[in-house]
Amino acid sequence: MSDVPEFFLRFWPQLLQGAGITLLLTVQGLAAGLVLGLLSALARVYGNKFWRGLAVGYVELFRGTPLLVQLFLIYYGLPGLGITLSREWSAFLALGLNSGAYQAEYLRGSILAIGEGQMMAGRAIGMSKWRAIWEIVLPQALRLAIPAWANEPVSLLKSTAIVFLIAVPELMAVGKTIAARTYNPIGAYVTVALVYLAVVYLLDAFLKWAEARVKIPGFEAEGRKA
């Protein structure tokens, strides 16, 4: 434990680089997951039977199996089908697909919470269904989703640690290297844990700032009731 300050001094370039890759994996996975999650949520609420079924299948599959299994299937399994992806692509795909399934549920819940009245009011001034979804339902649903959805970036950031198993040089992999080089696993992993804590703290602060920025006076209470 007492080695921790020394580890920071000695390994800060590697730790910084690892944290950078961890953050990059998180942001990429989150972005891909947001697109997938949004599409799935819209498909489930507004789609026909086919799209609803597809979305349900996707969400159940990726929420119902471990991320590690998904990662290994993509990295070690897909080459058997003639699809070989790099480590980075495999990590990105697994994290994005997995996160999308969770985000779909957060977003679906908030879309349903907006209520049909808002859609009806949009249609009543001549908006098409998809325009009303885009202009009226989503801007409200996304705001409503933020408090619950804000768990996802933090959760995903910590999940990225498992991609060290396919040798992506993120923070956890840096920790393993330090542990091997110093024969001090406790010191190494405590150091890494502190870096994770710091990154999570910064991420949380950013999310709170973003939530406050898009907040609309009186909307929270009203929106939930409607």
Binding site: I125, I216, G218
Partner: peptide, 26 residues
């Protein structure tokens, strides 16, 4: 034009934008 019992204003838009949105987007 339709006016609803429970108003159904667009909660994320100001009064002005509520009135404007049909003009700009539709």
């Amino acid at each position: 034009g339709m006016v609803f019992q429970n108003f159904l204003l667009f909660n994320h838009l100001t009064a002005l934008d509520n009135v404007m949105v049909g003009l700009t987007k539709v």
